[in-house]
């Protein structure tokens, strides 16, 4: 069947193209709208995957608009792997390029947050560092101690109050978003990821920890970013969410 799939594909992707030759009903007549079953399955399955992956974006612009947008996205960016849990990485950029969505400028960041939540949900498990284990580190060793972030931690920065926008969209009774840009960590205690707004300097601190810097160096970097950075507040936040790993070299 050399070329058969090549014939099939353009018609599969584009409903305006004629049904390929050589496909029939059971009586040898041209397949006609029978071919549409496959066209429809491909388009609808990808649209549904996008709806599952980006529920907040879908709510913000309405289901009809979202399905239209998702259809266009799926044609422009078909999945490159059968593992659909990662599908839609290019969606924030796609949204940012849509002039018709200029009135919802925070939409790409909502999509980024949803990708971070999904990535966190499927990330590897870890053994959380306990407050006792942290307290047991001798003070003189703290500076050189590496406290790895959990593999499920995701970090993002937004020019919008993105945690509030997401919560207001997804949760009954959440307050109306107010305020300005936010640095966000997605933290997963157990199995449920939660977006958390970070205090000033927290983003630089967590990013340094995530890249393997010891506590002293991470604090230094955060202080360069935010002169009144408080490492205790950020560490407390991470400990409280079980977002630090038990390092192998701790007593």
């Amino acid at each position: 069947m050399t070329g058969l799939i090549a014939d099939f594909l353009p018609a599969l992707r584009d409903a305006a193209r004629p049904v390929p030759d050589g496909v029939t009903d059971g009586a040898g007549r041209p397949a006609g709208r029978r071919f549409d079953v496959y066209r429809n399955n491909v388009a609808v399955s990808l649209i549904e995957a996008m709806e599952t992956g980006f529920p907040a974006v879908a709510r913000l612009i309405g289901s009809r608009n979202f399905r239209h947008l998702a259809r266009g996205f799926a044609v422009a960016h078909p999945p490159r792997t059968p593992v659909m849990m990662g599908y839609g990485q290019a969606f924030p950029g796609y949204l940012a390029g849509m002039e018709a969505l200029a009135h919802v400028p925070y939409l790409p960041d909502v999509a980024r947050l949803e990708l971070a939540l999904r990535g966190s949900y499927h990330a590897a498990d870890h053994v959380p560092l306990t407050p006792d284990a942290l307290a047991a580190i001798p003070p003189e060793r703290l500076e050189d101690t590496r406290l790895p972030l959990a593999p499920s931690v995701r970090l993002l920065r937004s020019d919008w109050p993105i945690v509030e926008i997401w919560a207001y969209t997804m949760r009954d009774g959440a307050p109306k978003p107010a305020g300005t840009g936010q640095d966000v960590a997605v933290l997963r205690q157990g199995f449920d990821p939660e977006p958390v707004a970070l205090p000033a300097g927290g983003f630089a601190f967590l990013r340094a920890l995530q890249s393997g810097a010891p506590l002293g160096r991470a604090t230094e970097l955060a202080l360069q970013d935010t002169p009144d950075f408080d490492p205790g507040a950020s560490l407390g936040l991470l400990l409280g969410h079980g977002a630090l790993c038990q390092p192998e070299d701790l007593p």
């Binding site: 099939f8 050589g22 078909p78 059968p82 659909m84």
Partner: peptide
């Protein structure tokens, strides 16, 4: 069935002819 062609995944089970080659 087939579902991938030249790296693009179609998220559906697509049909093929039954020939000696397939």
């Amino acid at each position: 069935a087939w579902s991938t062609h030249e790296g693009a995944f179609f998220n559906d089970l697509l049909p093929l002819p039954y020939t000696d080659a397939t």
